[in-house]
Amino acid sequence: MRRLWTPAWIVRHVAMVVLVLGFLGLGWWQIGRATAGNALSWGYAVEWPVFAGFVIFVWWREVRHALRGPARPDAGEPADAGARPAGRPVATATRPVVRRPVRVARGPATADVGEDADLAAYNHYLRWLNDNPGAQPGDYPG
């Protein structure tokens, strides 16, 4: 339960209470207008409590998600699953890994003219970023 009393969660709790009370107050106000003869206000009198219910639903879903904690690895994973580099996405039955398409040149290959020093350094940087997926650009040792 300590996870729900961080400063960020306290702001979420307060925002939820303020929004729910505000939406219910607006619904009550619309009921008063509707009984005074404004027929359109009956729709709003129903709509505002629905908004309050939606806020409660989202808040409750986020509380359950926070209490559930980080995702645990499936028991059916192969034994060598720990050998995979950290930060690599793992495909599961409910969350497939989607990767960007690879573009392949269809024209004839150009002759290798030799690499520019800046281009070689940039390619080394890109290789390093690819090999270290969780790293930030500022972590680059080169």
Rank of each mutant, 00 (worst) to 15 (best):
I31E: 10
E115P: 07
P89A: 00
A120L: 14
A121N: 02
R95L: 00
L26W: 12
G82M: 10
H124M: 10
R100A: 13
V46F: 14
G27T: 04
A121E: 09
G32Y: 01
A109R: 14
V104R: 13
F51Y: 15
E47Q: 14
W29T: 13
Y44P: 01
G134F: 07
L24H: 08
F23D: 11
P101M: 04
Y44G: 14
G87A: 01
A91Q: 05
A66Q: 13
R99D: 12
G138V: 11
D112P: 11
L26R: 14
Y44L: 13
W42F: 12
P101H: 08
H124Y: 11
P96V: 00
T92L: 00
R100Q: 15
V104A: 12
F51N: 11
V58N: 02
W5R: 13
R68I: 05
M1K: 04
D80S: 14
G142E: 03
M16G: 07
A83P: 03
Y125S: 08
D131H: 07
A86Y: 04
V90L: 11
G107E: 05
Y125L: 11
G114M: 07
A39E: 13
W60N: 10
A121K: 07
R127Q: 12
G76V: 02
E47W: 11
A91N: 02
V14D: 07
A109C: 05
A135R: 02
E77C: 05
L19D: 15
V58R: 04
V11W: 09
Q30N: 08
F57M: 08
P49Q: 05
G142F: 05
P96K: 01
R127L: 09
L67F: 05
G32P: 01
R103N: 04
I31W: 13
A111W: 04
R33A: 15
V46C: 09
A121F: 06
D118H: 09
D131R: 15
W9F: 08
D131F: 02
G142H: 10
V104L: 15
P108I: 00
A52H: 09
D80P: 02
F51H: 06
G37R: 01
A111V: 04
G32W: 03
R88Q: 12
P89F: 00
V102M: 10
A120N: 04
P73L: 03
Q30M: 09
N130R: 12
G87Q: 01
A91K: 00
L4Y: 03
A83F: 11
W42G: 02
G27C: 07
D112I: 06
G53I: 07
P73T: 02
T94G: 00
T35K: 09
A135N: 01
A93D: 06
D112Y: 15
W28M: 13
P108F: 00
G27W: 05
H124V: 12
V104F: 07
W28P: 02
R2D: 15
A36Q: 06
G22C: 03
G27H: 05
L129Q: 11
P101R: 10
T110I: 01
L119K: 10
R106P: 03
R103V: 12
W29P: 06
G142T: 03
D116V: 07
R72C: 08
P108V: 01
R100D: 13
R2Q: 14
Y122R: 14
W128H: 11
N132M: 00
G142Y: 03
P49T: 04
N123Y: 09
E62C: 02
W48V: 01
